[in-house]
């Protein structure tokens, strides 16, 4: 009896077509993500990481292969997915509150129960006093929290994070990424993070999946176990095992031939 998986990708193939020919992006890509697990996917730039997320989110259809959740017969069934993009994309013409209920508005789910949930999140994430403000008045970290609430409002089973902090400067990024990931962990949601930053992957994830160069396939999977000494954003990076993980990932990516 194993832990139920949240997401199972089996033999995903995807290629895109231009006038100059066909490019294979993903080739026989398979992996599982368990419920409540935090998995990071790393790979060299342009290897198809973002394409993979778009497929999992249902924005693109794979040419072949299945994406299944919790149904062992392998039938195609998408999990309810929440997607955090590279930028917060809060709309300047809406107040913070109007921004976080955008998903509910689109899905016609503005029930009292959901609104209460959103209000609770605003309070928990220290945004309550900013609910009437415009996004421009918020700090980088607060914007990311607002974007997170917007995603969580729809109660997704699986959260996809596509280099969600890459637009922030390095210092803000360190604290915001630790902050956001701590908040998501508290909700017990399953997370799939895409990043090209190896340290970020090691410091945040339970398991790192390394993709090969294009056409991408799973090169190896490395479970991460860090001994944490304190709970600062830098704690994971200061862990004694950090460097050996980093070197191993570095080697795997460097000779990234499929």
């Amino acid at each position: 009896m194993t832990t139920p998986y949240m997401l199972r990708l089996q033999n995903i193939n995807y290629s895109y077509h231009t006038l100059h020919g066909e490019t294979n992006v993903l080739k026989d890509l398979s992996f599982d993500v368990k419920e409540g697990e935090f998995v990071a996917v790393v790979g060299s730039s342009g290897c198809g990481k973002s394409t993979l997320l778009s497929i999992i989110a249902g924005l693109l259809s794979p040419e072949s292969g299945t994406i299944a959740v919790n149904n062992p017969d392998g039938s195609l069934h998408y999990p309810r997915v929440g997607y955090m993009l590279q930028h917060d994309h809060l709309f300047e013409w809406r107040s913070v509150y109007k921004n976080v209920i955008l998903g509910l508005e689109i899905n016609h789910m503005l029930t009292q129960e959901r609104i209460n949930y959103v209000n609770q999140l605003l309070q928990d994430y220290d945004l309550e006093q900013f609910r009437g403000k415009r996004p421009g008045e918020l700090s980088g970290g607060m914007k990311q929290r607002a974007a997170l609430i917007r995603t969580l409002a729809l109660d997704p089973q699986l959260l996809l994070l596509d280099e969600p902090f890459s637009a922030l400067d390095y210092q803000t990024r360190l604290s915001v990424s630790a902050d956001i990931c701590r908040l998501i962990r508290r909700t017990g949601k399953t997370m799939l993070l895409i990043t090209h930053d190896l340290s970020e992957a090691i410091s945040l994830a339970d398991r790192v999946i390394v993709l090969s160069r294009r056409p991408a396939t799973v090169k190896c999977e490395i479970p991460i176990h860090l001994t944490l000494t304190d709970d600062s954003p830098l704690a994971a990076r200061n862990a004694p095992e950090f460097n050996s993980y980093f070197n191993r990932l570095w080697e795997e990516i460097k000779n990234g031939e499929p």
Partner: peptide, 20 residues
């Protein structure tokens, strides 16, 4: 990317037009 955001929230092309 803002239009993509609408799609990731489950919106249609119509939603993308009206909301963004």
């Amino acid at each position: 990317e803002k239009i993509t955001l609408i799609y990731t929230l489950g919106g249609s092309r119509r939603d993308a037009f009206h909301k963004v």
